[in-house]
Nucleic acid binder design. Sequence first.
DNA 1: TCTGGGGTCCTAGGACCC
DNA 2: TCTGGGGTCCTAGGACCC
Length: 409
Amino acid sequence: MTEVASILHADLDSFYASVEQRDNPRLRNRPVIVGAGVVLAASYEAKAYGVRSAMNGGQARMLCPHAIVVPPRMETYSEASKAVFEVFHDFTPLVEPLSPDEAFLDVSGATKLLGSPAQIAADLRSQVLADVGLAISVGVARTKFLAKVASAQAKPDGMIVVEPDRERAFLHPLPVEVLWGVGPVTSAKLRDHGVETVGDLAASGGAELQGLLGSHAGRHLRALAHNRDPRPVDNSRRDRSMGAQRALGQRVRTREELRTELLGLAEKVAARLRKAERVTRTVTVRYRNADHERESRSRTLVEPSASTQLLTATADDLLLTLVDGPHGPGSRLGRVGCSLIGITFSGLGRADAVQLALRFPEEGRSTERLDGLVDDIRQRWGSKAVARASLIRRSEGIEVLGRPTALDA
DNA sequence: TCTGGGGTCCTAGGACCC
DNA sequence: TCTGGGGTCCTAGGACCC
């Protein structure tokens, strides 16, 4: 946490809809909805009628009958996102992406060269508009959390700088829902207890909140309400999981159709995994029945892998535990139905780290060689890698060497 | 009008080890 | 044989975010 407000949260306004308006002049100043079945994004003109993202398409058209509905163009959005992040990196190397249209920037090291954080934020906004043609809102504050709240308040196409002496006056009158981590469930609990604003939350007792929300969430939200958020902007984060899912219609699926669907998804994600040069430790199959109740089954592999064959076979096994009931193959599927099937790979590591661990047997077991390898790993991947390496060293057994663990990326 | 697709983080119980 | 604490890993589920 810095002493001055030098963390920026930059957030593109109605990203997909803005790209459509940028590329097609006829859509400008008109209500635009991206996505037909479900609203992926809505322009501000459509939002004025109550249209929200994730809303059902039919409901959105009822609220705003004259809206123009366009199909999504994901590749175009991806290019626009890449271009915006290039602009971010022109201002500072400390960029932490949150999503394709959102990032934190720490500009504390750039002020000598580029001016005050407020000046940098203003320049960032005009540069993104000039280079990519999109409006971006920016919040500037001492903490990540407050910068994010500020950018949300600055929308559309604005910026807010929260100076340290104005934090409380800015934050406390806002509704609790602006806090990161307060969704419908938590919001209802808090309001039942008379907590409506961030100021109410800050005034509540810690023990009371922890009793209501659980120990972690209680402590976390109380800290945010007091603007205590020590998390630094981290530009080294990597994805922790990778997955794909597919919603299925009303039609009843057979066991075989479901398997085909899932194995297709597994192949697709395994290919993405290999392209990213990563391996997974845990395979999870997600399932939603006809009543939209969710279930999942997961399995941790003996060793990390990105092999399509192993991952699809594991997915297949897990699926069968979900669909096969006591009355024979697929009998449970017949009873509960299926409206969504998905797969997630988690516990991701670097593919090259596994290969490094596999070098062990060839190098023998002499202490010097092990020490050298530990040093090598420490230099490349830091303390977490050392912890894994010392485990291997302590046991000195072939059974551990044969089961390398993916080092965290 | 019954509900997309991509993620993150946390909890709680059980197995297992020291 | 019974008892206990501390720690890690795994699994299933839930809340939340864009």
